[in-house]
Nucleic acid binder design. Structure first.
Lengths: 335, 335
DNA sequence: GCAAAGACTGGAAGCGCTCACAGTTTTCGT
DNA sequence: ACGAAAACTGTGAGCGCTTCCAGTCTTTGC
């Protein structure tokens, strides 16, 4: 239908057809202030007739704004990409930004080499700001971005940079407390924990929450995991070996809890009759477990919208801000 | 450290510092042909000294290439976003494109209103091409993109547009055959199926594969699902009611199979002793099921790299092409 | 009725880059 | 040593848009 690939119409073409100048067209297309009714109508018609679409590169060059932000995934293991919650986050951010006519540029910064690339990318003016997702602490990328004065909002507490960039996080520590208190309330007495990695804020805070409730416990009750399913199997076995009388275990992630469940089944312990299992994240897998996992839900949808809100405010020149969101206890059958 | 936000250095600044002209700097930065060694060295030094980073908007304006492509997610229900395989796809594409210095712009086209936005977005020259992910057939977006002569590669067979755009798909039909043949080989005789939605190529092809092996079966053996877990529960109950002697069931998705598993457990049937259950997708949930699901693995990583390869070829002016990739049978304990 | 304040408009100067072109220098075959 | 070819370089004309500026034309307050 459209025939040969023709030169795309420019603003001048629209101006010609509408019988006004390019400047007027530009004004009409940007809010329409100082444009008369007839002129606006003529321009509208001309836009439709010519099939004009504004050229974002030319516009960005002139305005020095790109109307896009980078979504930086800074995770060496790409582990986040396996996390369904990450989907929700990405989706939520993309949608909230789209509502403001801002596009998301997806950027992977797994390797150190990537980091240089991303840093260049962000400072080139390609984007107006960045959303940073990374679980591990001490990423040098944060320093670089801050140095470049790029507006950045992080997801999760950026350990060591709390006052230098904005961030939105869920209250892991309070969430862990919620869960452990739930276990206590249910009458469990020997409550163990399988932790997350000690170099992630989540890993640290969830353990802290556990300690908030139980204080210094028998060290054999606390074993290390790393958020993976396999680590859950191993950790549970270690826990059963070190403290056979454990009657409940708080696991720092659902996936790891699924591993713990498998280990318990293999050990012939019933859940929750013999040992209760509590997860964290309320990921998709939680409801599919057997028995379905009692877990802590993080408000991912809310996190994404708040991240976007904070970023928009930064773009408006406001100051950095932090935001801690409450978690929710989801009681199913495992505890 | 960097002090007040200063004007970013331009190519002219670099040229001044290096003592050459802007044209020479440009050439040095784009392949470096026809630039003498000393000039190149001086420019390198000047770039480092000034902290110069090329302005992509200016470059895109001049070259009429954006070095970025849109990743269009055209799924009304955002269901794909819950699928871990989608992660792999997005990740794979982003990575493969980054290797070619191409950025991914994430674009959601769930609602019809979004569609217009996306269409404008893509035709504005913001991107050089698009990767299209959508499960449902007959999306008008495809027509629009084809009309606009935008290079597009779809993920999955774009029913009704097979010859108009490039695509990469896994061989769902052959995969379904593989699985049903596996069930037959294991000695199952009353093999039922819970299908996917009839308006998705996957739904259609997997059913076709089932029929390829078993021919026209007792209609009570085939019940409809829609890829959700809930539909798996309902469908399995219907199947047990209509064909109580069923001894195996091929389910069009793992998630649905998890639902079927739950329904069977509730009905007191053991898996696989009483009824075997086979899934499709090898999603994360498959291994976490109890018992772990026998399923069909789709080569998502490969799909993503092939999509990118095809898109790069399109950008080079080559013709549309299709690619069907083989699936893999993953035998676990459920069948 | 008049000046001042606005509303509207066209023109022109960029935004920072690429690329064709013309001019200069070097290389090299003979 | 000479001409042709190749390598190198600077210049200038865009790419398509925004925005400031200086005008013209209406309002409006008094």
């Amino acid at each position: 239908m459209t025939g040969a690939r023709r030169r795309r119409p420019t603003m001048d073409d629209v101006a010609d057809v509408a019988g006004v100048s390019r400047g007027t067209v530009s004004r009409a297309l940007n809010g329409g202030h100082h444009v008369s009714g007839p002129a606006r109508a003529a321009i509208d018609r001309a836009v439709r007739r010519t099939g004009y679409v504004i050229n974002p590169h030319a516009r960005s060059l002139a305005t020095r704004r790109s109307m896009s932000v980078a979504f930086i995934l800074s995770e060496p293991q790409d582990r986040l990409f396996e996390d369904p919650n990450f989907n929700i986050l990405l989706h939520g951010c993309t949608q909230a930004l789209a509502a403001n006519d801002i596009t998301v540029l997806l950027t992977l910064a797994g390797t150190p080499a990537d980091r240089a690339r991303v840093s260049r990318f962000v400072t080139s003016g390609h984007v107006d700001g960045a959303l940073l997702v990374s679980t591990h602490t001490g990423s040098p990328l944060v320093d670089e971005l801050v140095d470049q004065q790029v507006p950045v909002v992080a997801c999760g507490r950026p350990a060591g940079h709390e006052h230098r960039i904005s961030y939105v996080a869920s209250d892991d520590r309070a969430g862990a407390r919620q869960m452990v208190e739930h276990l206590v309330r249910r009458g469990y007495r020997r409550i163990g924990m399988i932790t997350g990695p000690a170099d992630t804020p989540g890993g640290v805070d969830r353990l802290a929450g556990y300690r908030d409730v139980l204080g210094e416990v028998d060290p054999r009750l606390v074993v290390a995991g790393d958020y993976t399913q396999a680590s859950g199997v191993a950790a549970m076995e270690r826990l059963l070996a070190g403290a056979p009388d454990v009657d409940a275990v708080f696991v720092a992630s659902d996936l790891t809890a699924a591993g713990a469940l498998a280990a318990l089944r293999r050990a012939g312990r019933r859940v929750p009759e013999d040992v209760a299992v509590a997860g964290f994240d309320d990921s998709r897998i939680a409801a599919a477990c057997d028995p379905p996992l009692t877990t802590i839900r993080q408000p991912w949808a809310r996190i994404s919208t708040e991240m976007v809100r904070l970023l928009l405010r930064l773009l408006d020149g406001e100051e950095n801000a932090a935001m801690i969101l409450p978690t929710e206890l989801v009681v199913r059958e495992s505890a």
